[in-house]
Amino acid sequence: MAGYRLDKALAELFPTYSRARLQQWLSEGQVLIDTTPRRRGKEKVQGGEKVQLTAQLEEQVTWQAQSLPLNLLYEDEAILVVNKPAGVVVHPGAGNPDETLVNALLHYAPELAQLPRAGIIHRLDKDTSGILAIARSLPAHTHLVAQLQQHQFKREYQAVVTGVFVAGGTIDAPIGRHPTHRTQMAVVTQGKPAVTHYRIIQRYRAHTHIRVQLETGRTHQIRVHMAYQRYPLVGDKAYGGRLHFPAGSSESLKQTLRTFPRQALHAETLGLVHPHSGQWLQWTVPLPPDMQNLLMELEQDKINQNAD
């Protein structure tokens, strides 16, 4: 490595840590070259020096640990995988200061306090159910974030939308902050690239049950893309528009659609490369009861109309 910049040499010597974190430790004087602290990443190395990293992990979050239910699908020293129910917020924030998934995770695995965002790699909206992966160590966090950025995670969802799709397809439309409704996202020309693949599981009279695969992971991506295509998710209060009942539908179906408490979206499958073993791991969880009931009502409506 003679002639390398110090920051480039450190990135090769310590690949389990991100360049940003190595730069932080460098600026804090926690990198010793032949026992002397060095702080400038651009200085050149001679080759043959002894490098010592003296950094200590510090608490990255100040959120409180709380004893709350946690549905664990998998755990080892590197990762945790959980099945999040609808109605649970992932991170504490305005309006949700506690009783979130992070509060439960910090109680179960206190070491997560040393990781950015308590080890959370990707998020699900409060009212979306399904699978989330959490890093349990800094090297695992770096590895999983890189996988996510390179679109190597497998993330499949089931959803119920208003409207009858003719066929599956791909939505490739950039997503950014809504120009006037600042708490919402929208398809906007200056947004970040967003790609959603979908295929049909079952058509009903005025709705479609679909399976969705994310290529990118923008905020509210599936909800925004489906609304953009004019097939909004059932129950989506932000992007769903007006209720739509099939002609002649039963009171039971109308009541189910009126009172469905959330967007009909479930993170069904998650696959990733384990950050330590390099093995491909994959988990699938069934639809929760509220979505099963919604599909049962739509199927019954279809049967009733065919009988007539």
Results as ranks from 00 to 15, higher is better:
E77H: 05
R39L: 01
E28Y: 05
E59V: 08
V82D: 02
E49G: 12
L57K: 03
G47M: 15
V31E: 07
T36V: 11
E43L: 14
V51Y: 15
E58F: 07
L80G: 03
I79L: 01
K44V: 15
V81K: 04
K50I: 15
G48H: 15
A55I: 05
E59N: 10
V82L: 02
L53K: 04
L80M: 06
P69I: 11
E28Q: 14
S67A: 14
A78K: 07
V81H: 06
V31F: 10
G29I: 07
G47H: 15
L80F: 06
I33G: 06
G47Y: 15
I79K: 00
P69N: 09
V82T: 02
Q52V: 06
A65C: 01
E49A: 10
P69L: 10
K42D: 15
E28D: 11
L72Y: 05
L80V: 07
P37K: 03
P37D: 03
E58P: 00
G29S: 07
T54Q: 02
Q64L: 11
G47E: 15
G41C: 12
L57N: 04
E58D: 07
Q56G: 02
V82Q: 03
P69S: 08
E43V: 14
W63C: 03
Q60D: 05
E58A: 06
Q60W: 05
V61H: 05
E43F: 13
A65I: 08
L32I: 09
G47D: 15
Q30Y: 09
Q30S: 07
L72I: 15
L70D: 12
A65L: 02
E75K: 00
A78I: 06
V51S: 10
T36K: 02
Q64K: 04
D76A: 06
T36N: 01
L32M: 11
R38H: 09
V51N: 11
T54M: 01
L72G: 02
V51D: 13
E77T: 05
E28C: 03
A65V: 06
L72C: 06
L32H: 11
T54E: 05
E75C: 00
E77I: 01
R38T: 04
Q64A: 08
R38P: 03
V31H: 05
R39W: 00
E49M: 13
Q64F: 03
K50A: 13
G47R: 13
E59C: 04
E28F: 06
A65W: 05
G29L: 06
Y74Q: 00
S67K: 13
E59K: 08
N71F: 12
I79T: 01
V45K: 06
L32P: 12
E77A: 10
G48T: 14
V51T: 13
Q64T: 09
E59Q: 11
G29Q: 08
K50H: 13
P69C: 09
Q30G: 03
Q30I: 04
